[in-house]
Design a protein around this nucleic acid. Structure first.
Lengths: 148, 148
DNA sequence: TATTGTTATACTCTATAACTATA
DNA sequence: TATAGTTATAGAGTATAACAATA
């Protein structure tokens, strides 16, 4: 049977992940904007560095975004010389996207900024709780089909 | 000094909170849509039940949204008879928003749906990790100025 | 004048649909 | 005919600015 006073909505894991996610995304966006990047741009760079080059369609599937959005992301990153598009000679319909040295540099800067953000977010946590948070979030990401 | 191979971006707390938050928000939106509600509508109902009635401006500040957005939320909830607006007789500029019985019923249904969502999200976690997650997320919410 | 609420407008993000080039 | 990429268009969500009513 249900409790008479169930846990309020604002105390659920879903509500907390939603609100914290929104807060964190805003701060992440602000941090990477300093490099002329949008959050999804950085996501694409991270996917490229982790997985190597791949066709735009494959990348769109990995990131769970529409193929047309991947065009926009690749356009912007190409303009910044953070990626290059190379036509697949075997199948000239495919555009393989590869990260450049400058792209790696940008990604490293964003990664460093994100580590700082982590430190700020978890400043009030003990080292033990911080470790538990990392571990459980990683498990949640895996069991819900997210990369990382 | 920095590590040569720092933790990759996708393993940071910020990235995981951002991506999990986005996933969870989509599923939450889907769940509450069954009741004709948007996520922020439910957020307003939760704030009202937790804190009692308050003026629209105060509510907008609590929710960290623009006052004009609060008008939209109150309009929709009023149309559903989930809230009422009552002019403050002491200061006729103020519209106090109060939750109705029907509003409480809607909120209870959304809360139950969110508990189900919690169960799904954390299905692969042990009871100990689930408890740790709740505890640490609550601490993060508090130390980052979020309600709950 | 200052404040509360409201309306008008615009911007960001992202998806869907139509189109082009290649297979 | 089917697929990869691109372009055109549209919708959701939310903010900013202009305005109205009250203090």
């Amino acid at each position: 049977m249900d409790a008479v006073n169930p846990l309020p909505l604002t105390s659920t894991v879903a509500f907390r992940l939603g609100t914290l996610g929104s807060l964190v995304s805003a701060r992440f966006a602000e941090a990477v904007d300093a490099h002329g990047l949008k959050p999804k741009d950085v996501g694409l760079l991270a996917v490229l560095e982790a997985g190597g080059g791949a066709s735009q369609l494959e990348l769109a599937r990995t990131m769970r975004v529409a193929p047309s959005l991947l065009v926009t992301l690749a356009d912007r990153l190409e303009a910044l010389e953070a990626v290059q598009r190379v036509r697949d000679p075997q199948d000239r319909r495919r555009q393989n996207v590869v990260i450049t040295e400058h792209g790696r540099t940008l990604l490293a800067a964003c990664t460093a900024a994100t580590h700082e953000l982590d430190a700020e977010l978890t400043a009030d946590l003990g080292e033990r709780d911080r470790a538990a948070l990392r571990r459980v979030l990683a498990a949640l990401a895996v069991s819900n089909g997210l990369p990382g």
